[in-house]
């Protein structure tokens, strides 16, 4: 009798399909939780979406478009050009070095508020020295592979 009851919990997993077993459970739990969230807060969802839209379009709230999207564009460009350039200088880390100098300089200039001559020199030196130091120590001394 007992063994019959226990056999209710028998589960066999076909090895060929075992990659789907756990993800399926997790996906279902996720969907149920999402449904619960939407049900319990549906009244707040649509206004929140509208609010986000307005903020992104710059009609409401404090949102620094230049710096936010600038960061995204610069970072994407940095990563993209780094991978392109690393085919030009393979296995040397030069691509990382060159692109990091450019990226750090541009991002610093994007972020700084009141650019003075003194600040510019600091930023420029930082953009030149920091990546060079990182590249030298990591790629040359520790022989870490860099793009």
């Amino acid at each position: 009798m007992e063994s019959h009851w226990l056999s209710l919990f028998d589960v066999t997993i076909n090895f060929d399909q075992s990659h789907l077993f756990f993800p399926r459970i997790v996906t279902w739990v996720l969907v149920i939780l999402l449904a619960l969230i939407l049900l319990s807060r549906y009244r707040r969802v649509i206004p929140a979406l509208k609010h986000t839209g307005r903020v992104l379009a710059g009609r409401e709230g404090e949102f620094d478009h230049k710096r936010f999207f600038g960061t995204l564009v610069l970072t994407t460009g940095y990563f993209y050009l780094m991978s392109v350039l690393s085919d030009v200088f393979p296995n040397t880390g030069y691509s990382f070095l060159i692109m990091s100098v450019v990226f750090i300089l541009l991002l610093s200039l994007l972020y700084v508020d009141h650019l003075t001559r003194r600040l510019f020199v600091i930023i420029l030196l930082n953009a030149l020295i920091a990546p060079t130091l990182a590249w030298y120590v990591l790629a040359q001394l520790f022989r870490i592979t860099l793009p």
Partner: peptide, 17 residues
């Protein structure tokens, strides 16, 4: 000046490469 220095850095690094 900023473009100048970047180009210089680029060229220098390219030469080493």
């Amino acid at each position: 000046p900023f473009w100048g220095s970047t180009c210089l850095a680029l060229l220098a690094s390219a030469a080493i490469g």
